[in-house]
């Protein structure tokens, strides 16, 4: 892999707390000295958070589709009526 990708992998291991102590200290020292690197690592952490947020939204869309099927499809009328009856 090219260097920039190896750095991403290294930052990932750091963010996941998977670096051995020595490597972790070295990585932190490099971040102190290299502001660009620090910016990259922070942006990478943010990127992974965005992926999680995106993924949850996708999952929520899938669940909502199931909800719509259960409450709008004739096949599931008994189920839907049973649930809706609690709110009458």
């Amino acid at each position: 892999m090219r260097t920039s990708l190896n750095n991403i992998k290294l930052a990932e291991d750091y963010l996941n707390k998977q670096l051995p102590t020595g490597d972790k200290l070295l990585f932190e020292a490099r971040m102190l000295l290299d502001h660009d690197m620090l910016t990259n690592v922070k942006a990478q952490r943010h990127a992974v958070e965005l992926v999680k947020q995106y993924s949850r939204e996708q999952l929520r869309t899938e669940i909502e589709a199931v909800h719509q099927t259960l409450f709008n499809n004739k096949q599931h009328r008994t189920f839907a009526q049973r649930v809706l009856s609690f709110f009458r």
Binding site: M1, S4, L5, I8, K9, E12, T39, N40, A43, Q44, H46, A47, V48, L50, V51
Partner: peptide, 19 residues
């Protein structure tokens, strides 16, 4: 695996640009 890191780099760079 390479593609995963390329994608992560792309998203990271978008984050940086936005910042």
């Amino acid at each position: 695996t390479v593609q995963k890191y390329k994608c992560l780099e792309k998203v990271r760079n978008t984050v940086k640009q936005q910042s």
